[in-house]
Simulated assay, not measured.
Amino acid sequence: MNKDQVKGRIEEAKGKMKEVAGKVSGDKKLEREGKIQNISGKVQAGIGDLKEDIKDAI
Rank of each mutant, 00 (worst) to 15 (best):
M1H: 00
N2L: 13
K3G: 04
K3D: 08
K3W: 09
K3E: 11
D4P: 00
D4N: 13
D4W: 09
Q5F: 12
Q5W: 10
V6P: 00
K7W: 01
K7H: 04
K7N: 07
K7T: 04
K7L: 07
G8I: 08
G8P: 07
R9Y: 13
I10M: 04
I10L: 06
E11A: 13
E11Y: 11
E11Q: 01
E11N: 09
E12M: 10
E12L: 05
K14S: 11
K14N: 07
K14Y: 11
G15S: 11
G15P: 13
K16D: 09
K16A: 02
M17A: 15
M17R: 08
K18D: 07
K18Y: 00
K18I: 00
E19K: 11
E19P: 00
V20Y: 12
V20A: 10
V20E: 14
A21M: 08
A21V: 06
A21S: 13
G22N: 05
K23V: 00
K23G: 11
V24D: 13
V24L: 10
V24R: 15
S25G: 12
S25Q: 04
G26R: 05
G26E: 06
G26M: 04
K29Y: 02
L30F: 04
L30G: 05
E31A: 01
R32F: 07
E33M: 09
K35N: 12
K35E: 12
I36P: 01
I36S: 02
Q37Y: 11
Q37R: 14
Q37N: 10
N38C: 08
N38V: 00
N38E: 14
N38Y: 13
N38A: 09
I39M: 05
S40R: 10
S40A: 11
S40F: 03
G41Y: 04
G41H: 13
G41N: 07
G41I: 03
K42V: 09
V43E: 11
V43G: 05
Q44C: 06
A45K: 05
A45T: 14
A45Q: 14
A45Y: 12
A45R: 08
G46R: 00
G48P: 13
G48R: 01
D49W: 02
D49L: 08
D49N: 15
K51G: 06
E52M: 15
E52P: 05
D53I: 11
I54Q: 03
I54F: 06
K55W: 06
K55P: 03
K55H: 14
D56L: 14
D56S: 15
A57V: 09
A57M: 04
A57I: 12
A57Q: 08
I58S: 12
I58G: 02
